[in-house]
Amino acid sequence: MPETASIPDASTPAGMLEGDLVRRARNGDLNAYDELVKRYQERIYATIYHMTANHEDANDLAQDSFIKAYRALKSFKGGSSFYTWLYRIAVNKTINFLKQRRNKHHYSLNDLDFNTEHNPDLVALISDKTPHREVGLTELQKKLNEALMRLSEPHRMVVVLHDVQGQSHEEIAEIMDCNIGTVRSRLFYARQQLQGYLAEYAKST
């Protein structure tokens, strides 16, 4: 029996457009803001988590970012999308946090999901064909996070936003308040650095 697709009700926060939710939240409607948080929580959390490699820090920073955004909603002019504006707050907060905590990395890595073992690219990295077949996915995850932490914050941010989160160069330039050329050069340099740090895994087969 085919499932009937539920049409979102435009009168409830879940069915509202982003602009309406922002307008309501600006007037103090916390239900509207709750909906905005639900829409972007996963992406904001993931970006901060990949930058910090620490679940607890990512949780605190993500919550702080949403709270700061709510308090600053009055100053949001709508020149960019709420999503980009929110991202900018989260990115600045995270970079400031990492600068204060420089060289004091404390890893608190999340578990890998069930699908990891079914990802052919990843399986290939630990298969018998590679010289590092003894390395498990968890070990590889740890090495990858260590390599990322060796990058500077702006370079790490570009890699996370582009190669992990899948954002475009234009979006990253807007979020990081720089031009596209800078994004591209940072991405190239960051990949080059990662290639060096992970040479034993990133060899071409």
């Binding site: 990949h50 290939a124 992990v164 895994y201």
Partner: peptide
Amino acid sequence: QVKKLLKLKQHE
């Protein structure tokens, strides 16, 4: 190869 490695992050 680096990009494939970075895909692992998406599974965390």
